[in-house]
């Protein structure tokens, strides 16, 4: 069997080293080797967005990134979204406005919404809907998700 590859990467500000097979995906290593199971795998084809992470500043589906590509990169997952005990305003609004039902899509949606608000702090409903079109949710019908993002954006603008 081919030898595993040594990878050094930064996840949520912490340096991690791991060994992986060249065919392993980033989501596989995040969940398996690093035990960061907050990132979910829903389809493995980049269609559901449950595995969304921020990869060197870009929103990606971690099922479409090879783990070896993470070498020297900086990754942000749902586990790094809250500032210690302080929830991110998006997390808080999702709780207050019931922007989640079962919660399986929630980490991916929160990460994607955070990436949106970094780029556009005042998105319209339509902009949010199109930005989040890569994140499937089967429970909510999206209504309360969109409202949660709008409310969080408003709160963040007020600082």
């Amino acid at each position: 069997m081919a030898k595993k590859v040594h990878v050094t990467t930064t996840v949520n500000g912490d340096e991690h080293e791991f060994l992986c097979e060249t065919s392993q995906t980033l989501v596989d290593v995040l969940r398996g080797e690093l035990e960061l199971t907050g990132t979910k795998e829903g389809c493995s084809t980049g269609d559901c967005g449950a595995c969304s992470v921020i990869f060197d500043g870009n929103l990606v589906c971690s099922c479409l990134v090879l783990a070896i590509e993470a070498d020297g990169k900086s990754i942000e997952t749902i586990e790094g979204m809250a500032d210690g005990k302080e929830l991110h305003p998006l997390q808080q609004k999702f709780l207050e406005l019931n922007g989640l039902q079962c919660g399986i899509c929630t980490p991916g949606i929160l990460i994607a919404a955070k990436a949106l608000l970094q780029r556009n702090p005042d998105p319209t409903e339509t902009e949010i809907r199109f930005w989040l079109a890569g994140n499937l949710c089967r429970c909510t019908g999206y209504d309360k998700i969109i409202r949660s993002v709008l409310a969080a954006a408003a709160e963040m603008r007020e600082g």
Partner: peptide, 19 residues
């Protein structure tokens, strides 16, 4: 809901999350 906070921070354990 009580199960909400763990779900928004990624700590809630789903079927595939047990190691």
């Amino acid at each position: 809901k009580h199960d909400g906070p763990d779900k928004v921070v990624g700590r809630a354990k789903f079927g595939a999350d047990l190691i």
